[in-house]
Amino acid sequence: MLDFINRIFGRESSSSRNVAKERLRLVLVHDRAGVSPELLESLKADLINVISNYMEIDEDGLDVSLDSSENQVALVANIPVKKMKRKFETESA
């Protein structure tokens, strides 16, 4: 019903206005990441820091990238693990 009302008032989600907005949103995720490769580098460094609390990883084999499929963009990280830590080290340790 709401859909019907929306259609009457030109607000259905498949309107070209919304399609344009959604497509732009997606393309800009990529454009903006492309403008600053330093962003991915800095994210990589932060990831290493966090994950190192839990396991030993191969930092050189670490791969982080943005992957887009039809209607979403995903952050894909491939992180080779060398060794699990036996115990979770708390901050004080």
Partner: peptide, 12 residues
Amino acid sequence: MVKHGDMMSIDD
């Protein structure tokens, strides 16, 4: 056109 859903609005 914005009103008819055929153009992005200023807010968009």
